[in-house]
Design a protein around this nucleic acid. Structure first.
Ligand SMILES: [Mn+2]
Ligand SMILES: [Mn+2]
Ligand SMILES: [Zn+2]
Ligand SMILES: [Zn+2]
Lengths: 147, 147
DNA sequence: TCTCAAATGATAATAATTCGCAAAGAGATG
DNA sequence: CATCTCTTTGCGAATTATTATCATTTGAGA
């Protein structure tokens, strides 16, 4: 699978690329480059972080993976390159996919906004994950008690 | 105006903060911290870039300005803190406001997605601005001729 | 197998942002 | 106004993510 994808892109098939592609495809957690690096490393202890960055960027440019940029920290990648949307926890930065069918339907066909030629739309839902909701609660109540 | 806003936040009123607040309020171009710095500098030649970063971050946290994070480079700030959406040119990173009434209407009321408690939604339209459309055209045709 | 452009690894460089801390300033109080 | 205290500032160093450089290796076609 990974091999065909590289062939199809007309790129050289290297063990590093195969591994990166597999890691990103298997990941369900929108990993950052560093995380992909750690995972690929288990198979290829000698791989360089730079190679991971380079490869992910090229894959994103080629539309093979989706690059998510949640609330501006490090970029996060998703093996699922089909356009889709994300919820991001504003506290811990966990990223999860969201389906918004009506939304996509609404955008279908819109290809111009003012002077801009529309290429795509990314919806970023800013939210608090379950764990962080609790932590925030705790913080609040202990502050109340403390003072 | 700027003064009342600081008072209302319970923050010390300093000339630096007043100036930053005014610059961001007047800016129509979603400036980055560095740009705000350059503008504030004209009034306060001794201000530090760190102060600008600090202040913008605190203002964003307080909801006084809107922090936009277009395609993951440097953060961009908007004096208009009312929730709204943006088109970003994927080539030159120009940022412009966009109105999507139906969209906002659709989201009104949604406050939970799975385990996540929704705080807000940010729509980022990826696009090409007029200038960059042209440049891309040129690049294409000259490449065609070149070869 | 031979050749060579493409890819990699190691490391340095860059860019944006944050941190640490001493000095200056804001605001409250008498 | 003088004084006290807590906040904010400026500066430089540190951190973090990402990109660039370049010598070396390697895939892929002839
Ligand atoms: Mn995703
Ligand atoms: Mn805006
Ligand atoms: Zn969280
Ligand atoms: Zn542009």
């Amino acid at each position: 699978m990974a091999m065909e994808r590289l062939r199809h892109l007309g790129w050289a098939v290297t063990p590093q690329r195969l591994s990166i592609l597999r890691v990103v495809a298997d990941a369900k957690d929108h990993p950052r480059a560093e995380t992909v690096f750690e995972r690929v490393r288990r198979e290829h202890p000698h791989i360089s972080l730079a190679t991971v960055h380079r490869t992910l960027e090229r894959l994103a440019a080629a539309g093979e993976v989706c690059k998510v940029t949640p609330l501006h920290d490090s970029a996060r990648y998703d093996g699922n390159s089909a356009p889709h949307h994300h919820v991001v926890c504003v506290r811990c930065r966990e990223v999860q996919d969201v389906e918004v069918a009506e939304f996509d339907h609404h955008w279908r066909g819109i290809e111009q906004i003012g002077e801009f030629k529309v290429l795509g739309v990314a919806l970023e839902v800013r939210a608090l994950c379950a764990a962080c909701q609790q932590k925030t609660e705790h913080a609040r109540s202990s502050r109340r008690i403390a003072r």
